[in-house]
Write a protein that binds this DNA or RNA. Structure first.
Length: 553
RNA sequence: GCCGGAGUAGCUCAGGUGGUUAGAGCGUCGGAAUCAUAAUCCGCAGGUCGGGGGUUCAAGUCCCUCCUCCGGUACCA
């Protein structure tokens, strides 16, 4: 396998979920499901892999949500952290740990990181004018100031941009500025912040990105676009209450800026994972060794942080591993327009996970994953994929096989006699599919992996049709036994090959086959593991039909 | 405005370095089959590849231009 030479272990992350709202299918499609499929594949392949994720809990937007809902930031993040953690669990996401950034471990990790750079003299301070609300006693982020656009005179222009004429603005340029929260008029006040010298790292970053020949072109080109304009230094502190305080005296009311501190969550959460196992220092095996393959899964809105900012921070730090790949996805829209928390146009996991088979949701999303461009999720698509593909092709094959075994072979695996050519062909195609699917997973081609897996099931149905066991059983029971034996072996293969995308179905199938979960390994997918005489459990329906009435909403 | 991505069959999507009749799944229609959750299998039909211009023996693919959508644009993360 590809990582057996250079890499000894794999560290997979999904973009941390910002804890100011419920997670929706857009998050799942962009950064969570592809990572989960990849990780599940890696486990089956026998790799040493860990999968870390969690809630991103600091920053202005959390404070604003708190004000809006009339509760404290802590209450906000508690509410959404646990809600989202549960939602992911219900969808079968197999994080080794799903934690959060408001922990002591994270605070210490972020502060140590800051101190490390500070002691190397990499950071510098700069004083700038900002808008300050006397009433709220806080500095206002650009987007929380509105006023009259100096260019076109639009009266509702935001501090960062005028929606009317499209001009990029600074809040100091606005005429008649006011706070979007209270409406009061802010004053100009000076504040001193630490800056990270991003510009210094541009040559190293360019060299690094240019060496990545197997990255997606959209990610590479996006970065090159930033290089072309020239990277600028960036503030890494903010005047805010809700965040990680600076690890030094004399900076009261200043916290580490969330863009700088959040990605360190990957590190602190890994620490937590091993601390819980009694050896926190083991995190270093993953974060401080060159033979770790670090893979960040995320949506396109996050490319800048994972392909430029965070790598630069890691270069500055000097003792951490850089990403081996950043397979960014585009967005999954809903019924033709983008999903958005603020507009309420989204499918929240919590609202659908009880209504539908989680595997059907996973399948519908994975088979239309936005790997190359934005895609659309349609309810009728979920229904069609569930009924016409999962139910009709996979469910039906398993069901017709099990019913046959029950009816004619006493619910046990019949003996396989001499194989006919048609038997040998399907057995051989198990092997070739197993290896081609593996290579799709290795290369982050999840849609291809999935359609290839379904193709094997299509072949299986064709095999069933062509061998006509319902006729053969009347003339030649032994031959029929061979056919059903092959079909049952195929079911066992499906339990393994579908595990990355349909984990619940995979388990169910194994139960029906009366096979131990320990058998779940990629190497076993191409083996004919079911011995003759092996007793089967009664079949269950794998995918119930979704009726028209259920999706009309 | 600037940087990056996208626009391909009724629907959802694939189509490194330009090369014979542009692919798949689903849907539609026709046929076969009847073991099975009326589920399967075979076949037909369906596209002037966003518009316009150019390079070339040859363009979905390269160049120019225009339109539309998405992301970023450094203080949302």
């Amino acid at each position: 396998m590809e990582n057996s030479g250079k890499y000894r272990r794999i560290l997979v992350t999904s973009a941390l979920t910002y804890a100011n709202g419920d997670t929706h299918l857009g998050h799942i499609a962009g950064s969570i499901l592809p990572a989960d499929m990849y990780v599940r594949y890696c486990r089956l392949a026998g790799y040493d892999v860990i999968y870390v994720c969690g809630s991103d809990e600091y920053g202005t937007a959390i404070e604003m949500s708190a004000i809006k809902e009339g509760i404290s930031p802590k209450e906000i993040v508690d509410k959404y952290h646990f809600a989202n953690k549960k939602a992911y669990e219900q969808l079968g996401m197999s994080f080794d740990i799903y934690s959060r950034t408001s922990t002591e471990t994270h605070k210490k990790t972020a502060q140590d990181f800051f101190t490390n750079l500070y002691n190397k003299d990499l950071l510098y301070q700069k004083t700038e004018k900002q808008l300050y609300s006397e009433k709220e006693k806080r500095f206002l982020a650009d987007r929380f100031v509105i006023g009259t656009c100096p260019v076109c005179g639009f009266e509702e222009a935001r501090g960062d941009e005028c929606e009317n004429c499209g001009s990029a603005l600074s809040p100091l340029e606005l005429k008649y500025p006011r706070s979007t929260i209270t409406g009061d008029t802010p004053v100009v006040k000076e504040s001193t912040h630490f800056y990270f010298p991003l510009s210094k790292f541009q040559p190293k970053l360019e060299e690094w990105i240019n060496s990545k020949k197997d990255w997606k072109p959209n990610v590479v080109n996006y970065c090159k676009g930033w290089f072309k304009t020239g990277l600028q230094d960036r503030a890494i502190t903010r005047d805010l209450d809700w965040g990680v305080p600076l690890p030094m005296d004399g900076f009261d009311g200043k916290v580490i800026y969330v863009w700088f501190e959040a990605p360190m969550g990957y590190i602190s959460i890994t620490k937590e994972l091993f601390a819980a196992k009694g050896n926190e220092d083991k995190y270093k095996d993953y974060w401080c060794s060159d033979d770790t393959k670090l893979v960040h899964f995320l949506g396109k809105d996050n490319i800048i942080f994972h392909a430029i900012f965070f790598p630069a921070m890691i270069m500055a730090h000097g003792n951490l591993v850089l990403a081996e790949n950043v397979p960014a996805n585009e967005f999954m829209n809903l019924e033709g327009s983008k999903q958005s928390k603020s507009k309420g146009h989204a499918i929240y996991v919590k609202d659908v996970v009880d209504k539908y088979n989680p595997d059907s949701l996973r399948y519908a999303i994975a088979s239309n994953m936005p790997e190359n461009k934005d895609t659309d999720f349609y309810w009728k698509d979920l229904q069609a994929k569930n009924n016409n593909e999962l139910g009709a092709i996979l469910g039906n094959f398993v069901n017709r096989t099990f019913v046959f075994a029950g009816k004619y072979f006493d619910g046990a695996v019949p003996e396989a006699g001499a194989y006919a050519e048609i038997d040998i062909n399907i057995i051989n195609s198990i092997k070739s599919y197993t290896s081609s699917i593996a290579s799709y997973y290795e290369n982050y081609k999840f849609k291809d992996a999935l359609s290839e897996t379904m193709n094997l099931v299509r072949d299986a149905n064709k095999y069933f049709n062509d061998t006509e066991p319902w006729k053969v059983v009347k003339e030649d029971t032994a031959r029929c036994g061979t056919i059903i034996n092959v079909c049952l072996q195929l079911c066992n293969t499906f339990a393994i090959l579908f595990n990355p995308v349909l984990p619940f179905t995979s388990e169910k199938l194994l139960r029906m086959l009366n096979m131990p979960v320990e058998n779940l390994s990629w190497a076993n997918a191409e083996k004919l593991l079911l011995p003759a005489g092996h007793k089967l459990n009664p079949p269950e329906i794998l995918f119930r039909k979704i009726e028209d009435s259920e999706i009309e909403q």
